[in-house]
């Protein structure tokens, strides 16, 4: 599974970083990006889905 944050949609709500810090980080401006090229380590799939389901800007996508 891979996650991706669309930087043109992210407005820095910071939900993904709060819910899944293993998968996302934020820059100095508070905008999010995926860690480890978006590769989701085994066992963290639910966290990836949780991050997607809580992004107000619909900026996160998941490739199964």
């Amino acid at each position: 599974m891979r996650v991706h944050v669309d930087p043109s949609k992210c407005q820095g709500h910071n939900r993904c970083y709060a819910l899944a810090p293993e998968l996302f980080d934020v820059d100095d401006y508070g905008n999010a990006f995926e860690l480890n090229d978006g590769v989701v380590p085994a066992g963290l799939e639910d966290k990836a889905r949780l991050a997607l389901a809580n992004c107000p800007e619909f900026a996160i996508s998941i490739e199964e």
Binding site: G12, D27, D28, G30
Partner: peptide, 11 residues
């Protein structure tokens, strides 16, 4: 906005 964002970033 860019001026103020770093002062209010999560970290």
């Amino acid at each position: 906005r860019r001026l103020l964002l770093p002062a209010f970033s999560p970290k």
